[in-house]
Design a binder for these strands. Structure first.
Length: 427
RNA sequence: GGAGGGGUUCCCGAGUCUGGUCAAAGGGGGCAGACUGUAAAUCUGUUGGCUACGCCUUCGGAGGUUCAAAUCCUCCCCCCUCCA
């Protein structure tokens, strides 16, 4: 029992209230009836990043302990859009989009969770059939003062910004979901606390035992300050290539490292504590601790072999030669191959460097390319180019590198091939 | 319904009274360079496009005045605040 609680509490922000969790677990142990763990998502259909995995990993812990995961797709609520943490309302989604998004979501999540044991439900199932008097009855369980307790609402209210009346309904609906599912535990990020607690309130009103609320910290992104999110561009996608994932983790600040250890890996708490101590007293170089972290995480999503490779590659490129172009580096570097249509070349088979960079997708415009060349950020076959008027001959193939991390191998298509491709496009 | 304040480049925000010197200050963020541990901090450069010391497009939208408009005029759209 103590072990169970320890695993469940690991990395959480809050367990409200802990005593009830203990009671539920004890009952579960004596009756053998697993707890129902609710977790809801908005089927907005974006790529999953490490920030999303924090609560999902918590679900996995519950799954390991033999409890039942109920995955709630908020297909109904998606039509309103949870105002939490954002000011823009989202465009409504069609049913088909919801289903499609849910499918891609579960594809990605299956790396972490055993999806065959997960119960999937859609909240339109019960929310759609409520009528106006049902809604009034539900709404009567809350007061305006109570709603304004939510930080997001009170802040907007005091700043004189708009709060849509329908936004008050969101916590209510989420709470009613818990009633409909008879949830024992609900998991969410700390910013969800209010909505999660609404579930407790409504469950009590409907004569159910209230759910235990478990909140998880919000994962800070690569920039070290903002919440990890796609729109902020500070994220690590779980489908990122091993080397990218590894590299991105290496670029986080030392301060974040321990949080990442705790929230994103299975390394034991005692060991994490030891790492922390060793760094503090200088026995362990923070870089090495971070490499371990990066390896560990890549391992989860790509397997040991890929993680080993990414690590070796990192050592080779960034700690030793620092040249992605060095002979024999091919196997580690694995540059993306880009073929330039030969009609883009000048008659003598050469091409202007800036144009080449843009064609290869390394820059958005020739002007940007020119700037980078002038800033000494571009090299070809390992040699810096700093004349923006340079003209290159592609020949067999060449390595083009921009900045520290972007590089591609360029080759030109034969005229015949590009002619074919062109015709293919027209057809 | 009444009164007032606004919409400027990725974001915030000057510039508008007193048209040109405005591709538009400053800050943030981004990118690159130096230093490093692809860390942090710091410093420097850069941040619409175009084979480019010139040209083109951009200050909510559409017109107009003018040699010249982010700046002046007309109409329209949108946002916010206060009062009711």
């Amino acid at each position: 029992m103590a072990e169970q609680i320890k695993l469940i509490k690991r990395g959480t922000a809050e367990v409200i209230p802990e005593a009830e969790l203990v009671k539920k677990l004890e009952r579960c142990a004596s009756t053998g009836k697993p707890l129902r763990i609710k977790f809801g998502i908005d089927p907005t259909g974006s790529e999953i990043h490490l920030g999303h995995t924090v609560p999902i990993r918590k679900l996995r812990h519950f799954q390991e302990l033999g409890h039942e995961i109920v995955f709630l797709i908020g297909d109904f609520t998606a039509q309103i859009g949870d105002p939490t943490g954002r000011s823009e309302s989202r465009p409504p989604l069609t049913k088909e989009q919801c289903l499609e998004n849910a499918r891609t979501y579960f594809d990605q999540v299956s790396v972490i969770l055993d999806m065959s044991k997960v119960e999937i439900v859609y909240n339109s199932t019960w929310l759609e059939s409520l009528n106006f008097s049902d809604v009034i009855k539900l709404a009567a369980n809350f007061t305006v003062a109570r709603m304004l307790e939510r930080e997001d609402f009170s802040k907007r209210y005091s700043e004189g910004r708009a709060i849509g009346l329908h936004e008050f309904l969101y916590p209510m609906m989420q709470g009613y979901d818990s009633v409909a599912l008879n949830a024992d535990v609900e998991i969410g990020a700390t910013e969800q606390t209010f909505n999660l607690l609404a579930g407790r309130q409504l469950q009590q009103a409907y004569g159910q035992e209230p759910q235990v609320v478990i909140t998880l910290p919000i994962l800070v992104g690569l920039d070290g300050t903002q919440k990890m999110s796609k729109s902020a561009g500070n994220y690590i996608g779980i489908t990122d290539a091993p080397e990218d994932m590894y590299g991105k983790i290496m670029s986080i600040s030392d301060k974040l490292m321990i949080d990442y250890y705790e929230l994103l890996t299975d390394i034991g708490e005692a060991e994490i504590e030891e790492i922390k101590q060793s760094i503090a007293n200088g026995r362990l170089h923070p870089r090495d601790a971070k490499m371990r972290l990066a390896h560990e995480i890549v391992c989860i999503y790509h397997g040991r072999e890929a993680a080993d490779w990414a690590q070796e590659r990192f050592r080779y490129i960034f700690q030793q030669g620092r040249s992605a172009m060095a002979a024999g580096a091919e196997a580690l570097v694995k540059p993306e191959e880009i073929t330039i249509p030969s009609e883009e070349l000048n008659p003598d088979g050469t091409i202007w460097i800036c144009k080449l960079m843009t064609l290869a997708g390394l820059t958005a415009s020739n002007t940007e390319a020119r700037r980078l060349v002038e800033q000494n950020a571009v090299s070809v076959n390992g040699e810096k180019i700093n004349d923006p008027k340079s003209v290159l001959k592609i020949g067999e193939s060449l390595m083009l590198q921009v900045g520290k991390r972007k590089y591609v191998r360029i080759s030109a298509s034969t005229p015949a091939a590009s002619e074919l491709a062109k015709r293919g496009r027209e057809l």
